[in-house]
Design a protein around this nucleic acid. Structure first.
Lengths: 299, 299
DNA sequence: TCATTCAAATAGCTAAAAGCTATCCAGTCG
DNA sequence: CGACTGGATAGCTTTTAGCTATTTGAATGA
């Protein structure tokens, strides 16, 4: 247990510096007895005399004090550093942000977002973690993550949700598919076709919910939690899919083009939010991330 | 100005360590609200949230806190070191002692004293300064010296005097001198002889005082502030001297033997003391020096 | 589902500490 | 000798650190 205070050390160092209790007190903007008492207390707790009092001509450090003063100056410098560091931690855009992203949009959204962020705020660093809605929420709640890009579907109440954008679902079809000839596709057109479902919460529930809302039941042929695998299967003509995330180029990993068509029905869009623990007051860094994310997603 | 306290940091570190305010409080032997308040205050002064509160399952540090915690642990370790150092400064025999010695007895007393001291307390160091009574007193008063071996003659009141030994003055004669044939010499025998006076305060006044007390006036032939020069002159037959310090061997630097005879008269001995500022409470190191010095001088 | 338990926050209080002004005292200097 | 300097002391006020008791919100378990 530490029995002295940083303030006492400050006073001691000032006394040694000025060779006078009164001058030190003046420099520190406190009264002379205040400093006098602090030194006396320090001497009592350490059991060593620290200053020699020369009646009418100030004070000078004892042999013991010299050694202590050396350490004290270092300690105070250290303490001041910590204060600056701590004060800046919340009020400057700097340091490391721990950000999560729902797997499917990470590779589509994050590269551009991080590029822009790095440009706007050089010197910051971002630790990215991909995951499912569930794991990311847990990490947010436990404080392992500061923010996460998620769908606003089934999010726990203790997460603050900052809406960033809404993305309409679209239909992905093999290029030769008969429905690809249409400018847009209705849900009713699709029920007879083979659905390849992106099977990852909460996307799965969202997609199935679109049909349910229209009173329809789709024909489920395949399902996979991998967006690229789903797109690959569609490209190979195994069926169609309904997706929200749309990578650039509309081409699958094995080189097949996809026909992307809007849904004719007025459906509820997929709401993308930046989530963070409701109990965590956002730092300037978090606010900056949020602002850049919104700019990236609304254009 | 430092706006937080070491105690607050201790509490923060403990909270992070235990993942719980209550557990930290228990470990620190304070109440839970005390720790709670300390953390809240730290957060207010730094303007950053430091802990995430998980209602029924403790707390965890935020991103900002992680960085602060790292520095805080280092700072606390540093502060603990300083406390140990400071506490030991007065209570262990260690460190550096700044000791002065009146010029004439330095080479006779100090070598043995320091050898013994180094043997009894290995690891300590002593910075020696020789000087006149006057300069040494000034250094003691200004705190530049911790202790000094001096004659207890005309010492200022603000120096504490610890009597170590009393040394009787003796007569130094050339070996062929007629008085050297006697077992002892009276002051009255000497008044007609040439006195070679050790002319350094306060020795000078002491020696002259011996004659004055006996109602006699010596014949002053030579005087010098150097003990060795005085002995050299006596060895060459230029006169006699009265001295207190008696180097081993009774031989001068230029190779002449001296006849040393006690004074027959009952004179006041030369009181050797260890002086230190009265306002300076002695440390263990000073006490050790004092004890060894007394042991050396009383045998 | 409803009481129970857990853990932190809050309220309200007390006591210790840190601060102040005024004054005293010892020493220096003109 | 008297004015001035500089630290210590006394007596008081304010602030802070600590306490107990209680509240709140969430998780747990019968």
């Amino acid at each position: 247990m530490i029995r002295y205070t940083l303030r006492q050390l400050e006073y001691l160092v000032a006394c040694a510096e000025y060779g006078s209790v009164a001058k030190a007190a003046a420099a520190l903007n406190v009264s002379q007895p205040t400093v006098s008492a602090a030194i006396a207390k320090l001497e009592a707790t350490f059991g060593v005399q620290l200053l020699l009092r020369h009646r009418a001509q100030g004070v000078s450090p004892t042999a013991g004090a010299e050694a202590i003063l050396h350490s004290a100056r270092a300690l105070l410098a250290h303490a001041t550093d910590l204060q600056r560091e701590a004060t800046e931690a919340g009020n400057t855009v700097a340091g490391t942000l721990r950000a999560g992203s729902f797997s499917t949009f990470a590779p589509v959204i994050l590269p551009g977002l991080l590029a822009r962020l790095g440009q706007a705020y050089p010197g910051i660093s971002v630790a990215i973690r991909e995951g499912t809605q569930e794991t990311l929420c847990r990490d947010l709640q436990s404080g392992t993550l500061d923010v996460a890009l998620l769908y606003d579907l089934d999010l726990p109440d203790d997460l603050h949700r900052e809406p960033l954008a809404e993305r309409m679902p679209h239909v992905a079809l093999p290029t030769g598919h008969r429905l690809a000839a249409q400018a847009d596709v209705g849900l009713a057109d699709l029920v007879a076709e083979n659905l390849i479902l992106l099977d990852v919460p909460p996307s799965r529930e969202y997609f199935l919910g679109l049909f349910r809302a229209a009173g329809l039941v789709p024909t489920l042929a395949f399902s996979s939690p991998s967006l690229e695998l789903v797109r690959g299967m569609v490209g190979r003509g195994l069926g169609y899919s309904i997706l929200v995330t749309r990578p650039e180029g509309d081409t699958t990993y094995d080189g097949h083009a996809l026909a992307i068509r809007p849904l004719r029905d007025a459906v509820t869009p997929g709401p993308i939010v930046l989530a963070r623990p409701a109990s965590l007051r956002p730092t300037r860094l978090i606010a900056a991330f949020e602002q850049v994310a919104r700019a990236c997603l609304t254009e």
